[in-house]
Design a protein around this nucleic acid. Structure first.
Lengths: 356, 356
DNA sequence: GTGAAAGCGCTAACAC
DNA sequence: GTGTTAGCGCTTTCAC
């Protein structure tokens, strides 16, 4: 019946006996259209099954009402939580969201290059991805409105948390419970993307140890993939050490789940034999009774999103560097250190004396 | 230095001493450009900081190389897994992905209407969202290339699993272990979206019970939100029943986590006192030793994505209704029923006799 | 309140 | 291999 022909605004205008201008006004809900005219046009639109072209409108208008979000591949719940809330904000503001996921450094280069070298959207947010100087310079010179979430760059409105402080808080929590041999289980190994939060949390861990005069023992620091399975494997090895840790700080709740599983398998009761603290405070953490560092994930995405909208609209975005708070959530997976039941050697409770 | 003026292809052409056609050819990597010319143009592009407009190209070309994915708000790991793999496929095929998330029925209406009434993309995939007749009719008449994942509609290429069979498999697994009093914990309550998988899994559960001559006891079926916390609350009440279940089928792993937590809190050992089986086989399930029904999440997203690409390219998409396999994964959370330690009443092991 | 017409910035067909 | 040019389908002045 209907041909493959796409009907355009001109045909609608003709069929309705008005000009394209009027049809456009109807489309855009301009008040300057007589009610009767509007009705007539609307009817023709329906009858002809007319579908206005977003592309043509964008070109003519000079803006696409579309933004890009650049994120790591969606394997981390924390990334997803931020992304989801950002998308919601954009939708509320009438923006469409182009999601570009990045798995490798090469892909990151490609996407950042495209973002910089082409006019594809009204703005972009970079989420949980650490960009290098080349990326940043390219983006800067493109003058594309840009905000960042869970990552930062000079001159770019960024919404972050202090991961170093988070690492410090987690470690401090364990130390305050009497733990001295505290291990760190993180991700970032075998991944060529520049995730950086883990390294910053590790730094906070080191600083807290230092602050309390505890030695930093590289044997207690294990990095793997970002998966519970990987964390479990690392933990199994940690628990098999001659002098195993009495507490483990996992750099993410996802990893902490693996730590808990491995502890269970190794016959270590949590928190009686082993204290475990995570990071993020995912829903699952509460269910598992996992102590963790809470960070406002959804909020960060919202901020990044609404700040980009402001930027695009030429409105003030507030502080360039916006820091959201972190808090310790003590649940059932951390407890005061009992005298260690394992290797009752010379080093008990005196980890500070082990060789650095 | 540079003015706010957007430089366009004509200015590049002039500056490079060539025509716009040639610049376009360089932009689109046409082979029909002398190497020297290409170099010169590229250089001018760089110098003028020229950013070709995706919108203009799309309009002129007649296609945007962009697709839309319509998904429920990203709270379910299963949805995210499917989405992520679909995005990857689109990226591989040179398509940009517009992600539109839906939280309420009204939002679903709005997004489907936009998809149908406007020309916004080259195609779309509807993911884990049950559409009604109005939606479907609108989409059909829009002639937008469309595929579906984890949901289906007549005439639309759909990639699904048989959730009824999944429910059956899970229940059957528990029955085969000797369980007779089997509860169902699901989501879908207080949610105006038409999720349907839970209801279909519940149907499979009923059928399996029936098949084995076991009575369906509404008191053992509890629906709440899609969160571990909700499932935990429901489970707590189930375990407080005069005749509590000896096994629970949770309609998703996320819920099963809550079930496990509640069981733990109630002092019920899993699987000694209570068997638990989930659905999806998320990463966490393996870590928690959770028995579950495995479904190929990433694969479903890939199929939906590549089938849409095929559809857009005018290639064959294969079977309209594509069903992916489900398998039982028996882990540590399900075990053979011991004689029930609780209310040693008349109904023990004879749940079939309780009033329907 | 409506019409006419000038772009928006590109691609692709055609000519040379 | 390169130039010319006609659209692509809208929005938006500017008249009236």
């Amino acid at each position: 019946m209907a041909s493959a022909h796409r009907v355009n605004i001109a045909e609608v205008a003709t069929a309705a006996g008005v000009s394209v201008g009027t049809v456009s006004r109807v489309l855009n809900e301009s008040p300057n259209v007589r009610e009767m005219t509007r009705r007539r046009v609307t009817e023709v639109i329906k009858r002809l099954n007319y579908r206005p072209s977003k592309t043509a409108a964008s070109l003519s208008r000079g803006s696409s009402r579309t933004v890009v979000i650049l994120v790591p591949f969606l394997t981390r719940p924390s990334v997803v939580a931020r992304l989801a809330s950002a998308i919601r904000v954009f939708d509320d503001h009438g923006f469409d969201t182009l999601v570009r996921t990045v798995e490798t450094a090469a892909q990151c280069d490609r996407h950042v290059a495209a973002l910089s070298a082409r006019d594809e959207a009204d703005g972009a947010v970079v989420l949980s991805l650490r960009l290098n100087r080349v990326h940043l310079e390219a983006l800067r010179s493109s003058r594309l409105p840009l905000t960042m979430v869970d990552t930062e760059a000079p001159g770019v409105p960024s919404t972050i948390v202090d991961d170093v402080r988070g690492g410090w808080l987690a470690t401090e929590h364990l130390i305050s419970l009497g733990h001295r041999r505290i291990a760190f289980v993180g991700d970032g190994r075998g991944c060529d993307l520049r995730f950086v939060s883990t390294r910053r949390r590790l730094l906070g861990y080191r600083r807290a140890l230092e602050h309390h005069g505890l030695a930093y023992d590289p044997a207690l620091v294990r990095l793997g993939q970002h998966s519970a399975a990987s964390a479990a494997a690392l933990t199994t090895r940690l628990l098999a050490l001659a002098e195993p840790p009495t507490a483990i700080f996992a750099s993410a709740d996802t990893l902490a789940i693996g730590v808990l599983a491995a502890a269970d398998q190794a016959g270590r009761a949590v928190p009686a034999d082993l204290s475990v603290i995570g990071f993020d405070d995912l829903d699952a953490a509460a269910q598992l009774g996992l102590s963790t560092i809470h960070q406002p994930l959804a909020e960060s995405g919202e901020h990044g999103g609404s700040r980009l909208c402001a930027l695009i609209g030429g409105q003030p975005v507030g502080r360039l560097r916006e820091e959201l708070p972190l808090t310790v959530v003590a649940r059932a997976s951390t407890a005061r250190l009992k005298w260690r039941p394992w290797p009752v050697g010379s080093g008990a409770l005196q980890a500070a004396e082990t060789p650095a």
